[in-house]
Amino acid sequence: MMKKTTAPPDTNTRSDATREKLLAASLDVFGRYGYDGATTRKLADAAGVNLQAIPYYFGGKEGLYIATAEYLVEIIGRHIGDLRLRIGARLAELNAAGTPLGEAEARTFLTEIVQTMVVLFVSEKSQAWARFLIREQMEPTEAFARVYQGIMRPMIDIARHLVGTILGEDPALEHVRLRTLSFVGSILVFRVAHAAVLAQMDWSSVGEKEIAIVRDHAADLVAALTPAKGSQS
């Protein structure tokens, strides 16, 4: 990546604003057109900045693409970072004391996670994120690695720990991993199949009433998590 030239103090704010504009616009443009279809002209025009801003701040389109993935991690982190840290701290505290996490507390934490995520997924602001992520799921690049390691893996690992506790099984077991992924998928559907959700629910949009419904549904999904029939746990 090209080294950014040190700017005088009075231009720092303007430089930061230009960089932010490019990242915000790129998340939408890359999501809509993919890496190949998103020309530097489209990216610059969408951000309302000079074309030369891309090589100046990011070294080129590839650098901007990777930075956009890191920007997405940062955005999602703003919404769930505190929750992740709080749950992580509690798990670390129990581990240090040699005390296992109880099922009731695991259900409480998992409910908090899925209710936070489902509200995020039905919001309009997650549309651009979903487009970007879906493209990376289909044809993963270094950008996917950044998003997966930065936000997806940590959250799935926490969810797997909680699901394993609820099921009374080792979170590392293959079928616990599969139960966790299926569970996560039941939440992701509210974004990746957003149009189908609206059509099936006869909703024209998602407002406070609909958000309350999906939050209750998310809690029901956690409550329904039970060991599979024939489980030895």
Rank of each mutant, 00 (worst) to 15 (best):
G164A: 00
M117Q: 13
Y35P: 02
D16C: 13
D202V: 14
E70M: 11
R32Q: 14
I80A: 14
N95C: 09
K209D: 13
H175Q: 06
Y71K: 07
T108P: 05
L94R: 08
P55C: 07
A97S: 11
S26F: 04
G48P: 04
F190H: 05
Y35S: 03
L83V: 14
Y57E: 05
D82C: 08
A143L: 05
R179Y: 03
R131M: 11
D170S: 00
I211L: 07
M152R: 11
A223I: 07
A92V: 10
Q52K: 12
L72E: 04
H194A: 03
F144S: 11
I113N: 03
N50E: 08
H161N: 10
V147E: 01
A89H: 13
G60N: 09
G34R: 01
T18Y: 10
L120C: 12
L94A: 08
A17W: 13
G81M: 06
E169D: 11
K125R: 15
G34F: 02
V197F: 07
A224G: 12
F144H: 13
S205R: 15
S126H: 08
A46E: 03
T40A: 06
V122M: 05
P55R: 08
T108A: 14
Y33E: 11
Q149H: 14
D216M: 10
V192K: 05
R215K: 13
I187Y: 01
T180C: 01
A38C: 02
K125G: 11
R41I: 06
L110A: 02
T99I: 15
S231F: 02
L181N: 10
L120Y: 14
V222E: 03
V163S: 00
D157W: 05
Q149L: 14
R191A: 05
I151M: 11
I187D: 01
D10P: 07
L22K: 03
V114S: 11
D28C: 09
